[in-house]
């Protein structure tokens, strides 16, 4: 059993990113970057448990090509019967969460990264190997990854495939640390206790949250962009010298999802401002190294300078 989502302490940025990506799938995937021991994986798993009731399809370290792309059922093959088996990419696309989770994604072999990149970009999985020759279309899933930047950056091409990037900082505030210790130990003590009010309350809060997110998802198409907001997204993208239009589009989609979550009928400049960091932090850099420049007060100020005219 995973720690219920409502029991997570902190991680506001990552939670917001996951919720936005859930409400509006068109935003794309989420990358969580942060130091070790910051519960990035727990947060992702808790979120998918809350939303779809099961763990995400996970690409583990050391997965072989046939399990990623698809292959044959070996046991049957050894008995002389050839029966194909889906790989993790197809499994992720068919899963209720429509998510492929990759832990330590920056340590993944470039070869596998290229395969994932191709499929995420095109939605087409072409398997031409080991006796299989097929092309699957509409293989769509959200790529969700975690990484520790100390172990190296991610290629810009792959970074760009993540709609949102959340910076997960270690909790150093003593009060927050105390809450983490108390909550986790209490969860461990009571998770298997069917009579635990603590767990019942957490499950109820999770159900409430899921219902709210589903409602936001349902009303997403009814949320309209306020006058000038789309132009404002383009101006913000321009101010950050983004290459291409993916950044503008994701900015607008993420702001719309946030408005839906907040129950607002219109997307306004405030929504754009609040999602700007998640959308822009990995797109504004020029370096090929994948090292993300820190988001500074100057970046916030630039967003604010660009946005006041959004309403007009």
């Amino acid at each position: 059993m995973i720690l219920p989502y409502s029991l997570l302490v902190g991680h506001r940025e990552l939670r917001t990113a996951l919720e936005i990506a859930y409400v509006n799938e068109a935003v794309g995937g989420v990358l969580a970057t942060g130091q070790r021991g910051t519960a990035k994986t727990t947060t992702v798993r808790a979120f998918t448990m809350m939303t779809v009731g099961r763990l995400p399809v996970t690409l583990p370290i050391g997965a072989t090509d046939d399990r990623v792309l698809g292959g044959w059922q070996i046991k049957k093959l050894m008995r002389g019967a050839a029966e194909p088996e889906d790989g993790l990419l197809v499994e992720a696309a068919k899963s209720p969460a429509r998510m492929l989770y990759v832990d330590e994604i920056n340590l993944l072999d470039d070869y596998l990264v290229n395969i994932i990149l191709d499929v995420v970009s095109t939605g087409v999985l072409s398997v031409q190997r080991e006796g299989r020759a097929e092309e699957l279309h509409d293989v769509h899933f959200a790529l969700v990854g975690t990484m520790n930047p100390d172990e190296g950056g991610l290629r810009p091409q792959l970074l760009d495939r993540f709609g949102l990037v959340a910076d997960v900082l270690p909790e150093e505030d003593p009060e927050q640390r105390r809450r983490i210790v108390e909550t986790v130990l209490r969860f461990e003590a009571e998770r298997d206790d069917p009579g635990s009010e603590f767990m019942a309350e957490a499950r109820a809060r999770d159900a409430e949250k899921k219902a709210a997110l589903d409602a936001a998802r349902a009303r997403l198409s009814a949320v309209r962009y306020g006058t000038g907001v789309i132009d404002a997204c383009a101006r913000v993208a321009d101010a950050f010298e983004l290459v291409g239009h993916r950044g503008d589009l994701v900015l607008g989609r993420a702001a719309r999802a946030l408005a839906a979550i907040e129950g607002a009928p219109l997307v306004d400049a405030g929504h754009v401002a609040r999602v700007a960091k998640l959308v822009l932090v990995h797109r504004r850099g020029r370096g090929e190294s994948g090292t993300l420049p820190p988001w500074t007060a100057e970046d916030d100020a630039r967003v604010e300078r660009t946005l006041p005219n959004a309403e007009g």
């Binding site: 994986t41 583990p60 370290i61 072989t64 399990r67 990623v68 059922q73 070996i74 832990d103 330590e104």
Partner: peptide, 22 residues
């Protein structure tokens, strides 16, 4: 393989191995 396994399994809620059709 041992150090990777330790990182993957220790203090994890869930574990997975995806190899050679299994």
């Amino acid at each position: 393989p041992v150090t990777q396994a330790a990182v993957t399994l220790l203090d994890a809620d869930a574990a997975a191995a995806e190899l050679f059709g299994h």
